[in-house]
Design a protein around this nucleic acid. Structure first.
Length: 200
DNA sequence: GAAAAGATTACCT
DNA sequence: GGTAATCTTTTCC
């Protein structure tokens, strides 16, 4: 189709190795999903344009987690977090939007950074920039990524050698929990904020 | 209805 | 290192 699409297909999307992640992948404990999404590919098609990233940084938000938007139960904004596993939860913060993948009811994985596959491996660092780079919009809130062609997630082909673990970014409660994960040593992860310091 | 806060980012010193 | 921008949702009175 488009030039970008064919470059993507030629360089990184061997159809023989595409394995789309389905409901069962997301219907598991959230920390495991957050870790296994590292290296997975997220593909978004909007306005006839397809963009794709390899995820390199994620965060888990759990039940009973004071930092989670779902902590006080469903509201208009967070209702997608209570949808089926594999739902997209997109919320607006200041002037940007951020995207999560819902796991089990009321839990989700925030997508913090990814390497853009069709743009010379440029990195989209930060959840707002990641969504902007992919073309994710607030209207994508609630989209089921396990069906349809708008948004799809594909399993990683190789397990990351080392996964960094640290505190989540930008929260004011439950700030110490080691629920942020990144591919340690990956070229796309330049310096993803310090890991949780032992004993502090 | 009013006020505060925010899972961010860009720009400042 | 710190803070302003900027606006929707949530919370409180």
């Amino acid at each position: 189709m488009t030039g970008i699409r064919s470059r993507t297909a030629a360089s990184s999307s061997d159809p023989a190795e595409e394995r789309r992640l389905g409901r069962a992948f997301f219907d598991r404990p959230t920390v495991g999903v957050a870790r296994e999404l590292l290296g997975a590919r997220l593909r978004v098609t909007a306005h006839g344009l397809t963009r794709e990233v390899r995820l390199v940084e994620t965060e888990a938000y759990l039940r009973g987690d004071e930092a989670s938007h779902a902590f006080r139960g469903p509201t208009r904004r967070n209702r997608s977090m209570f949808g089926p596993p594999g739902s997209l939860y997109v919320y607006r913060i200041h002037q940007v939007v951020c995207a999560n993948l819902v796991t089990r009811r009321g839990e989700a994985v925030l997508l913090r950074a990814g390497a853009l596959l069709a743009a010379g491996d440029e990195t989209a660092t930060g959840p707002g920039r990641l969504c902007r780079a992919l073309g994710v919009r607030i209207e994508d809130d609630g989209v089921d990524v396990t069906v349809g062609s708008r948004v799809a997630v594909f399993a990683r082909r190789v397990r990351p050698r080392r996964i960094g673990v640290g505190a989540r970014v930008g929260i004011s409660r439950a700030t110490e929990r080691p629920l942020r994960f990144w591919i340690d040593g990956d070229a796309a992860v330049s310096r993803p904020r310090p890991a949780l310091r032992p004993g502090r």
